[in-house]
């Protein structure tokens, strides 16, 4: 095999990947903002102060206040925390259930595979919004509702990625060699398959994280997500919509926050894909 590329260490390449760097910056911005909000926000947001409403940007309120007099920046910071926690747990649910299911489908084949894939189809037929609507009917609206609805939708996504990755390895001789070494299917999956599809899963996780942020925003815009006093970007947009004609900036900030975080995690995922892509790695061989 002809190779024309000199080997470059992944970290060195990371610094050269523009999308990775931009993604890392944007995602860190949101993550740090959300993290700080755990201890400190510029102003408290659980008390309404109507006298203070609809202020423009000032040294007191960097981004102004909303129609109830709450500090926008503080709301955005708490919103960052809300959406990241919801999206993270949802990704966790997807990984926890989806990956074992996908691996099971890939290794057992036959009826088990068919059952897993059909279940996948079934879940795909319920967009997160519909699941959320059903769960709301059951439990009422709330953050948990959003987490479950988005998490359920993540399960088949990860199942698919895990199955596809495992299948692409299935013809490899090193798996046969492992079987000749008397290793059980479970051990081979843990020792050989999982580490080799970890890259795919990491990349997918960042993508699902950004999709989760989008979905959380959508649900809370409809009022199906986290409830007050917890701030969330989606509901900020919903409240801002009625004020569009007088205070369009209220709709601007939360939207930008969503775009920045989704863009950040997407770019991060793209960058990671480039860095971890087995095809690129192979070329470096």
């Amino acid at each position: 095999m002809d190779t024309f590329e000199a080997p470059i260490h992944p970290f060195r390449r990371a610094w050269k990947s523009r999308s990775f760097l931009i993604g890392l910056c944007l995602a860190s911005l949101i993550l740090i903002a959300g993290f700080i909000s755990l201890f400190w926000t510029p102003h408290a947001i659980d008390s309404l102060n109507v006298a203070n409403r609809l202020q423009a940007s000032s040294s007191q309120h960097w981004l102004g206040t909303d129609q109830y007099g709450r500090d926008i920046l503080s709301m955005l910071m708490i919103g960052a925390r809300t959406s990241i926690i919801v999206a993270l747990i949802a990704v966790g649910i997807g990984l926890l259930f989806g990956v074992p299911l996908g691996l099971l489908a890939a290794t057992k084949r036959g009826l088990v595979e068919e059952a897993v894939m059909r279940t996948n189809d079934l879940i795909f037929a319920f967009p997160a919004i519909l699941s959320a609507i059903l769960i709301t009917a059951l439990l009422g609206p709330g953050a948990v509702n959003a987490v479950i609805a988005i998490g359920i939708f993540n399960i088949p996504v990860f199942a698919r990625v895990a199955r596809g990755g495992a299948l692409s390895l299935s013809g490899r001789d090193f798996l046969l060699a492992a079987r000749l070494s008397g290793k059980s299917g479970l051990r081979i999956t843990l020792e050989h398959v999982l580490p080799n599809i970890a890259n795919l899963l990491i990349v997918q996780a960042t993508i699902q994280l950004s999709l989760g942020i989008l979905a959380e925003a959508g649900l809370s815009y409809l009022g199906l997500g986290p409830q007050p006093p917890l701030a969330s970007w989606g509901r900020m947009l919903n409240e801002a919509q009625t004020m569009m004609a007088f205070a369009p900036q209220l709709a601007l900030y939360p939207g930008l926050a969503i775009v920045v975080s989704v863009l950040g995690f997407n770019l991060l995922g793209d960058g990671l894909r480039d860095l971890l892509d087995p095809r690129l790695r192979r070329r470096i061989r």
Partner: peptide, 14 residues
């Protein structure tokens, strides 16, 4: 024990 054909696919790259 066995030796396989493909010298690239018969090892776990990790």
């Amino acid at each position: 024990q066995a030796v396989f054909q493909d010298p690239y696919g018969s090892f776990d790259p990790r």
